[in-house]
Write a protein that binds this DNA or RNA. Structure first.
Lengths: 214, 214
DNA sequence: TAGATTGTTAATCGATTAACAATC
DNA sequence: TAGATTGTTAATCGATTAACAATC
């Protein structure tokens, strides 16, 4: 099977969630599409990437499909992560269900504020950033989460890179530069706001002068 | 001009940010591409959506290009937003630069916790959710931000819909269902984590047995 | 069996990349 | 002018949609 795109990954997660919320044993692609907000063709196409799992006339068995999809995305072992920035955002991230019940675990946090260093939030110890390389290696950390002000985000990223991390999630509203081979996922509220305004605007003005020249 | 896709919006924002950070008066598409992490062809193609603004041999004038791009995305008036959920995440959002210096302003927050109702965070008053329709109408609010636990996110979305909001940003790790015509942007850490793991895995195992059948 | 639904193949659509003529 | 860089057109690539044969 060929690697699937990031868009498919997002949709597959929405299928898994839909499966979790539904009661019947069997679900058709149409049913699943409605729950996940897509089309039945899309659902069948996506699922076909993971082998044959449905039965004509009956649809997909909930438990079987869920297991199949998860097999491709959920690792059996626990993935260790670190958090840079123990402010409000950092606290919110530590409280995120993905980290509380999930297979991803935040094993350490870093913050420059001396008052925070040495304390624990939700059981996670806060260190000075200069401890990062040592802690990251010792705890076999694989990914880093950047939740610092944007002025400091590049510094955090650099520190992660030298510590050997190959994946990071950046909440700061600024681009970070990393060497090739390092994966960055941006979670930027500004981008979402901007594209939402654009869409809202387009919807209002669409037939007007500004949005269609030809 | 045709409406541009959401991907272009995100890239344009990255160009604007790159322009803000650079000193020289003129920038070539190559230079801009390097800063924004894309290709020069992409840069020229994207910019061409907004008219002719560069000059052959010299590139783009920083100030001119910035102004041009912003003209399409930044509204002149202030957009009012409301926040559902005044926990750690809500606090972090209230502190986000987009809302402090930007043209988007959070004018009210809602929370079910009686201890929080009536208080203010960063100057923003917290109300009981049942006040939402009244407050949203009175303050001419256009967008809503959902920062509540996932169990409550559908309830928040419903309240926003009945209050007349047509755009919302959902931080809860669950899909919300809204009527046609309402725009939802999801900011879901779980999706990003999952797709990152998938990519990291694919990179490691790519040539192995599991990811290529043919 | 008959009919509904899958999995797959082909057609369409849109986005990215490449190439190059226009032009400063 | 000569040469570099834009804006645009054409080629490529990938993703979505439609259609339908396979099949339970």
């Amino acid at each position: 099977m060929k690697p699937v795109s990031c868009k498919i990954v997002a949709r597959v997660l929405s299928y898994i969630r839909a499966l979790e919320s539904e009661k019947p044993h069997h679900l058709s692609s149409r049913h699943l599409a409605r729950l996940a907000g897509t089309t039945e063709a899309q659902v069948r196409k996506d699922i076909s990437h993971f082998g044959r799992v449905g039965t004509p006339r009956r649809g997909y068995r909930k438990a079987v499909l869920k297991k199949r999809l998860e097999a491709f995305f959920i690792r059996n072992d626990v993935v260790h992560a670190v958090l840079f920035g123990a402010g409000n955002l950092g606290r919110a991230i530590l409280g995120c269900p993905a980290f509380i019940k999930g297979r991803t675990q935040i094993v350490a946090a870093f913050d420059t504020n001396p008052k925070k260093i040495g304390r624990r939030i939700r059981g996670v110890r806060i260190y000075s950033p200069e401890m990062a390389p040592e802690v990251i290696r010792r705890r076999h950390v694989e990914i880093g989460i950047i939740a610092v002000p944007k002025e400091a985000c590049q510094r955090s990223a650099d520190l992660m890179v030298v510590s050997g991390l190959r994946g990071m999630i950046n909440f700061a509203p600024a681009a970070i530069r990393v060497p090739k081979g390092v994966i960055v996922k941006d979670m930027d509220l500004t981008v979402e706001l901007l594209s939402m305004f654009y869409e809202l605007n387009a919807r209002r003005i669409l037939s007007g002068s500004r949005f269609y020249q030809k």
